[in-house]
Amino acid sequence: MASADLIDPTLYSSGDAYGIWRRLRQEDGLSWHQVDDSRGFWSVVKYADTDLVLRDSATFTSERGTLLDLLGTDDPAGGQQLAVTDPPRHTERQARLKKALAVKAVDRQRETIRGKVVDLLEPLGSGQAFDFGTAMLALPMSVTGTMMGLPEADWAWLSRLTTVCIAADDPEFQDPGGKEATLQAAHRELFGYFQDLMRHRRDHLGDDLLSVLISTRFEGRHMSASEIVANCYSLLLGANVTTPHAPTFFLAEFTGTDVMADWAAHPEANSTAYEEALRWASPVNHVLRYATRDTVVRGTRIAAGDAVVAWLGSANRDEEVFENSETFDIRRKPNKHLAFGIGPHYCVGHSVARITVGVLFEELFARYEDFEPAGKPERLISNFASGYKHVPITARRRS
Rank of each mutant, 00 (worst) to 15 (best):
residue 364 L to F: 08
residue 210 L to S: 04
residue 46 K to T: 14
residue 393 I to Q: 02
residue 151 P to H: 11
residue 344 P to W: 13
residue 374 A to Y: 02
residue 397 R to G: 01
residue 307 A to P: 00
residue 341 G to M: 06
residue 381 I to Y: 03
residue 309 V to T: 10
residue 174 Q to K: 14
residue 170 D to L: 06
residue 313 G to H: 08
residue 175 D to Y: 12
residue 228 I to T: 11
residue 215 S to N: 15
residue 172 E to K: 12
residue 143 V to L: 07
residue 116 K to W: 04
residue 24 L to S: 02
residue 282 S to L: 03
residue 354 R to S: 13
residue 74 D to H: 10
residue 309 V to C: 12
residue 299 G to H: 10
residue 104 K to A: 15
residue 193 Y to E: 01
residue 283 P to W: 06
residue 160 R to H: 14
residue 180 E to G: 09
residue 159 S to E: 06
residue 151 P to I: 12
residue 327 T to W: 13
residue 67 L to V: 15
residue 72 G to K: 05
residue 200 H to L: 14
residue 12 Y to Q: 08
residue 11 L to D: 07
residue 326 E to Q: 15
residue 92 E to D: 13
residue 205 L to E: 13
residue 191 F to M: 10
residue 145 G to W: 02
residue 367 R to S: 00
residue 323 E to S: 15
residue 172 E to Q: 10
residue 112 T to Q: 12
residue 358 G to Q: 14
residue 372 E to I: 00
residue 77 A to C: 05
residue 161 L to D: 07
residue 337 H to T: 14
residue 117 V to R: 00
residue 16 D to R: 12
residue 321 V to N: 05
residue 362 E to L: 02
residue 261 A to Q: 12
residue 85 T to V: 12
residue 180 E to T: 12
residue 71 L to V: 05
residue 262 D to L: 04
residue 385 A to H: 03
residue 363 E to C: 11
residue 245 H to L: 04
residue 116 K to Y: 06
residue 277 A to V: 07
residue 112 T to C: 10
residue 322 F to L: 03
residue 344 P to N: 12
residue 104 K to D: 15
residue 41 F to Y: 14
residue 262 D to R: 09
residue 303 A to W: 04
residue 369 E to L: 02
residue 56 D to G: 02
residue 278 L to C: 03
residue 194 F to Q: 03
residue 188 R to F: 13
residue 371 F to C: 01
residue 251 L to Y: 04
residue 318 D to G: 09
residue 289 R to T: 13
residue 310 A to S: 15
residue 95 A to T: 07
residue 28 D to N: 15
residue 337 H to L: 11
residue 227 E to M: 05
residue 46 K to M: 11
residue 318 D to I: 10
residue 112 T to P: 00
residue 366 A to H: 02
residue 96 R to A: 11
residue 253 E to C: 06
residue 158 L to P: 01
residue 73 T to P: 00
residue 99 K to I: 14
residue 30 L to F: 01
residue 53 V to C: 07
residue 346 Y to F: 15
residue 281 A to C: 10
residue 167 A to I: 11
residue 213 L to I: 11
residue 5 D to W: 09
residue 349 G to I: 12
residue 83 A to P: 00
residue 390 H to C: 13
residue 350 H to D: 13
residue 96 R to D: 02
residue 71 L to P: 01
